[in-house]
Simulated scan of single mutants.
Amino acid sequence: MGIGITREQRELADAVRGWAARAVPPEDRRKLLDAVPGPAGRPAWWADLATQGLFGPQLPEEHRGGGGELLDLAVVLEETGRAGLPGPYLPSALAAELLHRGGQPDLVRAVAAGERIAAVALEADAVTAVEGAEGYVLDGTAPPVLGGGDADLLLLAAETATGTVWLAADAGTAGLTVRVPPGADPTRPAAEVTASGAPVPADRLVAVDAALVRDLAGTLFAAEACGIAAWALHTATEYAAVREQFGRPVGQFQAVKHLCAEMLVRLEQARALAWDAARSMDEAPEVRGLVSALATATALEAAFTCTKDCIQILGGIGFTWEHDAHLYLRRATVARQLLGGPAGHRQRAARYGAAGARRALRTELPAGAEP
């Protein structure tokens, strides 16, 4: 069962799972392992995603979206994560939501329609911008941009004299260089984006802040991580039921039973938190930040540990080139690299929780009393 709780969302999950199995069979995904590092180009199935409205099931209909809620996108992402969908779907869907919240309706429509591929630089401290009469001039190198090699629209954070701004830059802008080095996940590589006097028009300013980008990215990556963990659990339990050792299926051994049970517990915890995080994106920033931090920490760690445990139950064959388990471990590892390990997210959640407790305590104390 996915993180969606309504019948319609379960049907959506089933539809996406069936589409992914037909459109991207495992052999197509594995061809990317031997590809030369660099832009892969627009996937053959990209138009199918747009036709089905999967780039923005949560976006308003006037923006070519499905008119649903963010939880609908989370449901889709869990299934694309379970399918190990290659290509920049997650980065583009994240960019579409940020462009929508940041007041760029024309760009939202282009991304939601599949006409443009977008990607987001998740860090905000490596590029500087000088503001002029006609816009901004960018200099510096952004952190790894997931899916940036295939994107023609890049959401970049830049430091100005007055603070951080987020800008939607065309990948073909003069002075903007996009390079795709070898990476841990060849099915969805990250790009290095370097700006050297790259101009961005003033009307490409995206009205979001770093906290929103972090919370929204963490929530969507958490939803995908649930799909990765679900694949690992399913693969491990299916194998444990048929692999025999000493005349018995290995799934009958207590150690294997416990490991599979622990994987299930981690997955269900991650799903519950990812669902709550998707529901909280329109709440107050401190509430949104708390729930998103918990979901990011729990789900990304569940994906990483479940794929490792899956390989253990497989008897190590998941480390071999021929089995897909290493692809899911690669994807889980890259997510942790991009967003950070669980400790930092839990510390952030603790700070939000402590601040909320102090505010609640102040409201209960007599006037003038110190908490």
Rank of each mutant, 00 (worst) to 15 (best):
A15L: 13
V24E: 10
V24A: 08
E27V: 11
P37D: 06
G41C: 03
D48C: 10
A50S: 10
G68S: 07
V76G: 09
G81N: 04
G81S: 04
R82G: 05
L85P: 01
P86T: 05
G87F: 03
L90I: 02
A93R: 01
H100F: 15
A110S: 14
E115A: 14
A124N: 15
A126P: 04
A126K: 14
Y136N: 02
D139T: 15
D139C: 01
P143D: 15
P143M: 09
G163E: 05
A169S: 13
G175I: 09
V178T: 14
R179V: 15
D185T: 11
T187K: 11
A190Q: 09
A202T: 13
R214C: 04
A223N: 07
A236N: 04
E238A: 14
E238G: 14
A241P: 02
E244D: 11
F246C: 03
Q269I: 07
Q269K: 13
W275L: 14
A278L: 03
E283T: 09
V287H: 13
C310N: 11
L329F: 09
L329I: 01
R330S: 13
R331D: 08
T333N: 01
V334M: 11
A335T: 05
G341W: 12
P342R: 08
G344Y: 01
G344I: 03
H345E: 03
H345Y: 07
A349E: 01
R351G: 04
A355K: 11
R358Q: 12
